[in-house]
Design a protein around this nucleic acid. Structure first.
Lengths: 138, 138
DNA sequence: AATATAAATAAGAATCATTCTTATATAGGA
DNA sequence: TCCTATATAAGAATGATTCTTATTTATATT
């Protein structure tokens, strides 16, 4: 049948994928996630559209973990936790970024602030658990 | 004469360079800065030692700007401003990272927080100035 | 001093995430 | 239909970083 237009089908799928997950995927992760449903998707298309979304403000790169950029389709500024063990990037939605911070940064820097990133690194809940269960043999 | 030991001479020079600047240099920038005084310095040595310092807690990567890691020899947690135009990474030393943030993050995440990064992106003071001087011809 | 061992380094190769190039396909307008 | 724009696939190119190998240097031991 194929009555529906094909235009932007892949672009839309990439954006939808990004907005449907909180795992803050890399380009490869988006590609791997969509490939089963879109067998003729190419990695270059993922990269190209992610960069487009970034320019349009529909997505942003929230971290670079082990040399790999991690994207977020949630454009509301929020806090992240990055696990040094399993490379997970986790939202801390309960936390607020103090509103005064940005204006303070603007006056301190003398420049124009466009964005604010607040993130914590360490060992995430599951990795803490795993280590406890195993027990330390030191 | 060359009475002084040569051991760690390059390692020390790299650490000293990192600690003497606030420009948050990349490995290439450290290499370029030291090459005149140490003509037989190799880029691999810079990378290797920067990673060593990172493991030892003597330095950290505070940002990845345009795919390039930027290092900091100042181990006191502090705030950074990253310019999207000139790629400068600037300290905002006057700003404090609210002490409560880290403990809140730890309880919210359920994990163990090792570090906190707070940074602002936008247009730095000099880039704002340049654009004003030139005037917009739109 | 001679030897052995271990760490530091230079040089360049290898890796790998990302970007770029080219050709093809598709949509919309004249 | 013809023309122009954009989207895409495929794979090549780029470039930051890491790895490998051989060499050098320091230290400990004789």
């Amino acid at each position: 049948m194929e009555a529906v237009t094909k235009q932007f089908r892949k672009r839309n799928a990439i954006l939808a994928y990004l907005q449907s997950t909180t795992e803050h995927p890399s380009a490869e992760m988006v590609f791997a996630g969509l490939k089963p449903q879109i067998p003729d998707l190419s990695l270059g298309t993922v990269y190209r559209n992610l960069n487009l979304f970034r320019k349009q403000g529909l997505a942003s790169c929230v971290a670079t973990v082990n040399g790999v950029e991690r994207f977020d389709g949630n454009t509301n500024p929020h806090v992240h936790f990055i696990c040094n063990e399993c490379d997970a990037v986790i939202d801390l939605m309960e936390m607020q970024i103090p509103a005064t911070l940005t204006s303070t940064a603007e006056s301190c820097s003398g420049g124009q602030v466009a964005d604010c990133q607040l993130s914590f690194t360490g060992k995430c809940r599951s990795c803490v658990r795993v280590n406890q269960k195993g027990g330390e043999t030191a």
